[in-house]
């Protein structure tokens, strides 16, 4: 066993164990945080640090094979879809009227004039107006 193998194996160990620690930290945050907007941050830890480190450790274990290509594909895909899905959830919650809790003094974080934001131009709203004006 050469020194190169030992270094690769150690790096993979460190990546997988620290990724597991990040996963449990994120899950604890999802359980313990007080409102939805702070739970988004904890979910982002699971999506970025946990998944990235675990996939990196697995890729180091697999070596330069086709398995690594698949792992990189999964990583790139999670990197694209994770923030997109989180943004979609946050935008839906914001439009539905959910707001972050204030700080300890009870002052809201979001100013009062942002409470009712203008909707982004979206397809079904315009479609419904067109169809209802005809009938």
């Amino acid at each position: 066993m050469s020194i190169f193998d030992i270094v690769i194996s150690g790096l993979s160990w460190i990546s997988i164990v620290s990724g597991s620690i990040f996963l449990i930290i994120g899950a604890t945050g999802i359980i313990r945080f007080p409102d939805f907007w702070s739970r988004l941050h904890a979910a982002a830890i699971v999506d970025s640090a946990g998944a990235g480190l675990l996939l990196f450790g697995m890729a180091l274990q697999a070596g330069l094979t086709f398995v690594t290509v698949k792992l990189v594909l999964i990583g790139v895909f999670l990197l694209i879809t994770g923030p997109t899905a989180t943004h979609a959830v946050a935008n839906a919650a914001f439009v539905s009227g959910s707001r972050p809790l204030g700080d300890k003094s009870g002052k809201p974080v979001v100013p009062a004039d942002v409470i009712d934001p203008p909707l982004p131009p979206e397809m079904p709203t315009n479609l419904s107006e067109d169809l209802t004006s005809k009938t």
Binding site: G26, A27, I30, F36, R39, L40, A43, V46, D47, A51, L78, G82, A85, T86, V89, A92, A93, S96, S98
Partner: peptide, 14 residues
Amino acid sequence: TLYDRVLAVNTFGT
């Protein structure tokens, strides 16, 4: 809320 559940489902899927 519903959005907590959607977020949890997304994390569970990951």
